[in-house]
Nucleic acid binder design. Sequence first.
DNA 1: TTGAAAGCGCTAACAG
DNA 2: CTGTTAGCGCTTTCAA
Lengths: 343, 343
Amino acid sequence: MSRKPISLKDIAKELNVSISTVSRALKNHPDISVALTTKIQALAREREFSPNPLAMGLLKQQTRIIGVIVPNLVTFFYSSIISGIESVARENGYYVLITSSYESYIKEKECVENLLSSRVEGLIVCLSKETKDYSHFEKIINKEIPLVFFDRVCRTSEFSSVVIDNRDMAFQIIKHFYESGARRIAHIAGPQHLSIACERFEGYQAGLKNCKLKFDKNLVEFIDLTIDDAAKAANKLLSLPDSPDAIFSVNDMVAYVTMKEIKRKGLRIPEDVLLVGITDEFHATVVDPPLTSIMHPTFDIGRECASLFFAQIQSKEKTPPIQKVMKTKLIVRESSVRKDRTC
Amino acid sequence: MSRKPISLKDIAKELNVSISTVSRALKNHPDISVALTTKIQALAREREFSPNPLAMGLLKQQTRIIGVIVPNLVTFFYSSIISGIESVARENGYYVLITSSYESYIKEKECVENLLSSRVEGLIVCLSKETKDYSHFEKIINKEIPLVFFDRVCRTSEFSSVVIDNRDMAFQIIKHFYESGARRIAHIAGPQHLSIACERFEGYQAGLKNCKLKFDKNLVEFIDLTIDDAAKAANKLLSLPDSPDAIFSVNDMVAYVTMKEIKRKGLRIPEDVLLVGITDEFHATVVDPPLTSIMHPTFDIGRECASLFFAQIQSKEKTPPIQKVMKTKLIVRESSVRKDRTC
DNA sequence: TTGAAAGCGCTAACAG
DNA sequence: CTGTTAGCGCTTTCAA
């Protein structure tokens, strides 16, 4: 029910010229006389003409829309990555259609369907934690639609992806723990079908080896990335007869929950237990004690995803998949540095 | 460079029928014979035909896209409202185009421009904190494009809006403080050109009056909603000769910062200072002590915004603006309940 | 220097 | 029952 926007036709009629003349004048085509061009442009500006993207899209067969699928929009991590994607998209005159899989495999498949039928020009995706089957993405290969994965990735030999060095990150954390004096280092790990969780677990093991610490399977809890699960895992670790003196939580959210459980047990951080998370969102600084964490360049991850998309869309030939590994940084705060025990 | 999707024409050609026959068969038009209909539908399914939204949009003059402008995507508050908007949009076959004003008036204007030239069918907006001039929205009235404001609103007599009862909320907080024994209640307030900040401040004053407490202007700090500003304000309040025994922070983020400053001063929460925020995001439960806050039904606010949009778009006549006031709830946690002083 | 016409994919009024 | 045609807004040959 909104009033119809001005079209080329309206301008043409008003000026008694043809539509094609207006079209040309608006893009400063040399064929059109300067006088007419100025007149047309003036009127167009006055009427606030802007080309109908639907018509353009239909003609050029492009929507200028990038589809994004995240497991859950309501987190610092994903929302700031989207922010990064959006900023590059905007620079290129593209829009971003955001959808959430809500960590559900079924919903993720729906998102892919919906986005494709919306004719998005490409997909930027972080897998849901449930996803173990990737056939809904393989279909995309034939359609020749650019697809970029980030963080939770798959089929990296077929699709471009933006990741961080999870293995190294975990390795660094263990080293940091060791240097802070920890000797029984526990790990609350994520589901192992997720590449990131798996790699972090590998890094944990490698880190232990590096510090000549023995791997103890009792010190590892695999969780499903829910709050309840995290609390249970933390509790189990803290109830061990020989309980850990440091806990590496697979992400910040899990670390917050772990922190709560440690306190509930009457233990102190960092005096009794050291704690480190991964993500480094704003809240890491407001919890008590401030949480040591690995900073993700979230905004840049988003920008990189979008750049990879544009690289693919712009090249005529099929581009080989690119894997971009982003730099992370350990941000040491109080939760992981042992104070003198003399307090 | 993606392979062209199947069109009606392709199917028509393959089956040696006309395009309109295919079109009709696909929508089960009674004119087409059952046999042909089934055949056409079968092929369409097999070829994974889905109608080109660009063509449909051009024809029907509708994009099925709602434009959203938020001050900043990277927060619990906005991202979960968007989540709510998106859920209703999806139910109605609409998409959501999200843009951020980054709290900038200029950028907000750009967002409006961009969204309009993308031919969104409506706008759902939360004002940037800088915005004091609303002319960029007034232009929208003539265009007859539905516009719904939420949280930070303006021109409520002209546009629909979804808000919470800020005044009452603040009033309840003061009452709660009073009942917890606080007598010198401070307020870290937001910029007063923002309706929400202003109303909260009014509620604060009304609440004091209700508790027969005298208003003391030294106990109020107006800030620009930045972290630095919040820290400074908290510090100033805590350095008063007669410093407050309770602080009402205008939102959770400010409350977190306030919490940090209180601790830095060596004061305890809630023993020395009570603290309450507004928003109630997940992190309220992980800070130490858990933060008392006012829960916003963020997801429902989003849903309500989208519903108001659809109400407007569906009614042929111009609908009068509707103001929807959402229910909030005080969630009492440790930060605002005085324990026995005997610890 | 400008205009006419075709076509992008689809629907709907009008023919047959 | 099915096909033809016009038109949504725009660009782009081809004609003039």
